[in-house]
Design a binder for these strands. Structure first.
Lengths: 289, 289
DNA sequence: ACACGTTACGGCAACCGTAAGGATT
DNA sequence: AATCCTTACGGTTGCCGTAACGTGT
């Protein structure tokens, strides 16, 4: 029966390339290494390591097995941190996770005790939801949220939306942008199915149909590149173009509309205590707002 | 020290909701369940299960731990199959994996002995490459391949490219489609960065610039839907529209050009034996060609 | 009295380290 | 002779099952 000692031993053996080396790195006697590997091989009914006089190397089966062994050990490693709540596992989606969250997490990490960690995972919104449900994440940061028994969500207002244009563009010199302005220029990005697209449609109402079709670029990075190349203008979150605006390759202009801010949800289980790491993270985010 | 028995026990406990139930499902005595869980909790230094008189339920730490326990057990389960080569792990990318491979795999599975399996994983081309390198996949099916020490690749010719149009379209009644035809109609999809787009550019040469821009729809499914709605025509792999052509919602026409076939690579480690499952899979694919 | 989980204890098997053995350079 | 892995053996520990115990319904 597969044991963690056996796996550790096998991995050490693969890394050091010798039984003596493995024994040294594991602080145990060398026959113990032999025995552990033997039991492992007996259990799996396969030869994992070819013993040569000058060290040893993995068999084909051993090579296939190595990544599995590493995975198991890595998860077992996580276990300690996860049960003792020394680690907040944050799952976030798309733009929020890419642009807004990193600096906040970085700041939050500085407030942590020793041994405490904060892990960020990025993925599409439905996957974030799944991770919360499966307890693979402690906190979810999402563009939409379906109220769910046992969980609570807090709404945060994100950066305002801004219009971006290449320097020298007609709209780049205006102080502010109105709804009508948006409808009169070809707008890149903002396709259906993205958070920004959904918000744009809400701001523009029925007139949203006038948005130039066929301009689905898929990612904010693609949109930024397209605008820089002079293909048109677009509407994105202010924080996503901070660098480009600072360096002058893009111009950003605020948009005249109250709803022109995107909000996001921060979700966690409702049975957490106030001193738990996930709650402390959420409080921290609330303070920063 | 975390053992698999302890994990199995914990999962059974979570599923049955009682120590007796777990003991029954594990075919062991009930005090053994108590003991295993006790050791597990001691090892993790946390209470995982709240004992009540009427069954028991997981603590917060227990809920966080459950998915980790399941992951470890699931990987450990795979281990047997993987080392004994009773399981080919196939990693494939995009369209090939979605449209071309499933029927082939289904046919191959019928030739397998008892207890043998074939797992398919889908992801972007670079991830397929990574999986091969990390030995997380035995066979890779890819759109491009960078020759790599220790691996060998075989080239396969895939289905021809066809032009698809809605029934009644001007091009839908033509027998064959020429290069010039392609340049004179708005073409949906085929954006840069996709395999089809790359091939189209190769077929059309410098004239590829005439392709209608801004029509990046992201997925073949999106392209098919757009064509069905009458937004335009497109070029896709024949096998990806087999169903739609059969049911009459789309019309497919062959394209007059020798290079209008996409090729893909099937890759495996070069140190495999002929009777190994991955080699048998590759031979099978070669026969079907 | 019953249902459910814990504690107590005897026996077996697993595991480790020391020491000796075998093979190759 | 030296290096490297394997085998052999004794002692300790861990783990299981039976049996007895405590406690709520």
């Amino acid at each position: 029966m597969l044991s963690l000692d056996q796996l550790t031993c096998f991995v050490a053996l693969a890394e050091t390339g010798s039984f003596h080396g493995a024994a040294a790195s594991l602080n145990c006697s060398q026959p113990t290494v032999s025995q552990r590997l033997r039991r492992l091989e007996d259990g799996l009914q396969a030869v994992l390591v070819h013993r040569g006089r000058t060290g040893c190397d993995l068999s084909a089966a051993g090579r296939r097995f190595l990544p599995l062994a590493r995975s198991i050990l890595s998860i077992a490693q996580q276990a300690d941190d996860v049960v003792s709540n020394r680690c907040v596992r944050l799952a976030a989606c798309s733009n929020i996770g890419i642009y807004t969250l990193p600096p906040l997490i970085s700041a939050f990490s500085k407030t942590l005790e020793n041994e405490e960690r904060c892990d960020l995972w990025l993925g599409p919104n439905p996957d974030v939801y799944d991770r919360l449900m499966n307890a693979q994440a402690d906190v979810g940061v999402m563009e939409w949220w379906q109220p769910t028994e046992g969980f609570e969500a807090r709404t945060f207002a994100e950066d305002p939306l801004v219009l971006i244009a290449p320097p020298g563009h007609v709209l780049a010199v205006r102080k502010r942008i109105t709804r009508n302005d948006l409808l009169q220029v070809p707008l890149l990005g903002g396709e259906r199915g993205t958070g920004t697209g959904r918000l744009l449609r809400k701001v523009l109402g029925r007139q949203a149909d006038k948005l130039v079709p066929g301009s689905s670029l898929g990612s904010t990075e693609a949109v930024k590149r397209a605008v820089r190349s002079g293909l048109g203008v677009s509407v994105v979150l202010a924080s996503s173009v901070r660098d480009e605006v600072a360096s002058g390759v893009l111009v950003a202009r605020p948009i005249d509309h109250v709803a022109a801010r995107k909000s996001f949800f921060v979700v966690c289980r409702s049975d957490l205590h106030a001193r738990d790491l996930p709650r402390r993270l959420i409080s921290f985010l609330a303070q920063q707002e």
